[in-house]
């Protein structure tokens, strides 16, 4: 054996590795994910379009020519024009502003319901996964039972019971979507707990708090973020579904579901009442889908 390589760290190949490694900045999981995400054209375009829709929803109504509840008696079912860009509805209200207000409500329900489902799902899943044993069994059994319930029906009953306020809608829709989140988080926690790098961290004396902070949470974040981008469109759909059945947002406030339902009633005489809100909703849902797919490709280490 060569004398100069008595210790492993002196071995030429290790030195070469060190030399090669030093100039390279450390690339974390998130740096990698960002690079992959930036390369995904569909996802990046969707981010831009979605950003525009969100900006329009927030600021559009402030600068629009009419208020969403202004009634113009001579504009009954008016076709799109300079004054009414998207036409006017059966009550003579400006559809452009109403579509943007609808976007506000639909997006708000989408985000808020997702946050509700995130909080419940992560707490439930992490608790079950972390403690394991009987607690895990009981908690997951409850999830199984809830899974087999016709949940839509309970949400409908819930909306009838508590009236149709936006807050109830956030909670009711969030309450349907947390089940899958809980399962995903539990599964991830279980596998992460047994991973070698967690064991290594434990062996080198990293405190449990730091293990959770530095190793469990960052690895949990990927799947959770991916699943979140999938829940948001579902929540938007659920809200529109309820509004379509007349159980959601009430007049004069509106949402895409309400507008589509009104559009469907007037589609023979004024099809644009259906086209504009349906188009906005479809574009938004497509965007979330592409972003979700992009994030999954970017964050899922299995597909590298």
């Amino acid at each position: 054996m060569n004398n100069s390589a008595r210790y492993a760290k002196d071995h030429p190949s290790v030195q070469a590795m060190e030399k090669a490694a030093t100039p390279m900045a450390g690339r974390s999981l998130w740096d990698d994910a960002k690079r992959r995400m930036m390369r995904n054209k569909a996802a990046m375009a969707s981010l831009v379009v979605l950003g525009l829709v969100v900006l329009l929803a927030i600021f559009g109504p402030m600068f629009a020519a009419h208020a969403y509840n202004d009634i113009f008696y001579d504009a009954y079912l008016a076709p799109p024009s300079d004054n009414f860009w998207f036409g006017a509805d059966a009550n003579g209200r400006d559809l452009f502003v109403r579509t943007l207000i609808g976007a506000r409500v639909s997006l708000a329900v989408g985000f808020m319901a997702t946050i509700v489902s995130l909080v419940i799902g992560v707490l439930w899943g992490a608790t079950a996964g972390f403690f394991g044993g009987t607690i895990d069994n009981v908690m997951m059994r409850i999830v199984d039972v809830l899974y087999s319930l016709p949940f839509v029906f309970f949400v409908i009953i819930l909306m009838v019971v508590f009236g149709t306020s936006l807050w109830i809608m956030f909670i009711a829709i969030g309450a349907i979507e947390w089940l899958t989140m809980a399962r995903i988080v539990r599964g991830q926690t279980l596998t992460l707990k047994e991973k070698e790098f967690v064991e290594a961290a434990r062996a080198t004396g990293v405190t449990p708090m730091n293990i959770v902070r530095r190793h469990i949470v960052p690895n949990l974040l990927g799947p959770v973020v991916i699943y979140m981008t999938l829940i948001i469109p579902y929540a938007i759909l659920a809200e529109s579904f309820l509004s379509f059945l007349g159980l959601g947002v009430q007049e004069p406030l509106t949402s895409w579901g309400v507008l589509i339902s009104e559009g469907a009633q007037n589609m023979e005489t004024a099809p644009w009442l259906l086209f504009f809100p349906a188009g906005f909703m479809a574009i938004t849902l497509f965007c979330f889908n592409f972003i979700g797919d992009g994030l999954r490709d970017a964050l899922d280490p299995k597909d590298r």
């Binding site: 469109p233 559009g263 469907a264 589609m267 023979e268 889908n289």
Partner: peptide, 22 residues
Amino acid sequence: ALAGITIPNFVTAPLLTLLFAV
């Protein structure tokens, strides 16, 4: 398939009705 998953049936139903029945 992507379109089918994304666009809910309360949108496709009136659109198809418009196309094939109206």
